[in-house]
Design a binder for these strands. Structure first.
Lengths: 196, 196
DNA sequence: CTCATTTATTGACAAATGTCAATGATTATA
DNA sequence: TATAATCATTGACATTTGTCAATAAATGAG
């Protein structure tokens, strides 16, 4: 399990064997069940997750029980309830394991410590943050400039595994539309596709 | 002009006099006219801007001429067409000076150099990036969970200067709604305001 | 494998928002 | 201050999307 994390990071940072041992030693393995909650709304996110296998979902839930998916984290990616993890505040979002998954967890304290002590760790973190921020900007742009049809088509093109693997309603509330609207978009595929 | 930047940064980073001179020496001052374009769509963003006075707008424009405001940068803040600046790719967004403004510009090359040579500069940058990313997440959430009325009310509460200072249509395309819808939201203020 | 539960689809209708057009207000600039 | 240009407001209507409800399909747990 730790080897997969090492394989993921080694193109991004150069560490000695001792440093690898040190770093990986601060990543706790956990196996989750389907729909298991890893962070309750209202709690402070104490862990950064690396998904080895499966998928995590970071989502909001309002008083009516209506959900909205902020982010999805698939194999090979890091994620957490970022504002809570960073600002040490109660999280407005919850984290759930969509599928039975295998994750590695790094605590906030350890993560801070690694940035202070492991050369290159902070830079790697900054570069990851840059990309996450860019992805967020792209998502904002799709939300302010496109309608549901366009957003769905782009997601289908750029991230088909997301649509294939997740229940319809999670895809819908990730796109910011209702389940029914998504279902209708799927039935009449975009453009013209004669003869079924 | 440089003093204002120094006042802004000094709580965030500890530098010697020589370091301040070095850093500020890489920030070129520029005065802009109303509506002046600082970055054309399609060009690579070569500068990070710090707004001393005025306001910059980072916006998208589609083939129909329809605009959408990605970000607004007021006095005391940094900003640029981030994906382009970071990835060194042609920008999908343009940058415009909404009002006559005074800005300081740091080139991409200088910014990289400062991160490599000035102790604390990279950390300060990472912390700024964290906050920008959090702001982007909050904006995504407002877009996927709220209707136009709610988004407007929150903006009015959290960022009234934005609504006061900018033309209606910029506020509208920042919120991802049409100018007319915004106008209607403004006329019937939210909740009940009898006899107004 | 079976059944209870969850999820997806579809129709009818309602609500929100966009578009187009006309008019009125504002404002930059000479 | 005049005036041309820009911007804001409003009405009528079209379109998109949401909500509710019924039914069908899929699926996980035992």
């Amino acid at each position: 399990m730790h080897q997969i994390l090492r394989d993921k990071l080694s193109p991004l940072i150069n560490l000695t064997e001792e440093q690898w041992t040190f770093v990986l030693g601060h990543a706790k393995a956990k196996t989750t069940k389907r729909n298991e909650i890893l962070l309750e709304k209202g709690d402070i996110a104490n862990y950064l997750f690396f998904v080895v296998k499966g998928c995590l979902r970071i989502f909001l839930i309002n008083d009516d029980g209506q959900e909205a998916t902020r982010f999805l984290i698939f194999e090979g990616s890091f994620g957490t309830a970022f504002p809570s993890f960073t600002l040490r505040q109660p999280s407005s979002a919850a984290i759930q394991s969509v599928e039975p998954s295998e994750v590695l967890m790094i605590s906030h304290a350890d993560h801070q410590m690694l940035m202070d002590t492991v050369p290159g760790w902070e830079r790697m973190n900054r570069l990851g943050l840059q990309q996450d921020y860019i992805d967020a900007i792209v998502r904002i742009e799709s939300l302010i400039t496109m309608d549901a049809r366009q957003r769905y088509d782009i997601l289908l093109k750029k991230n088909p595994k997301l649509i294939q693997r997740l229940p319809n309603k999670m895809v819908a509330d990730y796109l910011g539309i209702s389940q029914e609207t998504l279902s209708r978009l799927k039935s009449k595929e975009s453009g013209s596709r004669k003869g079924g």
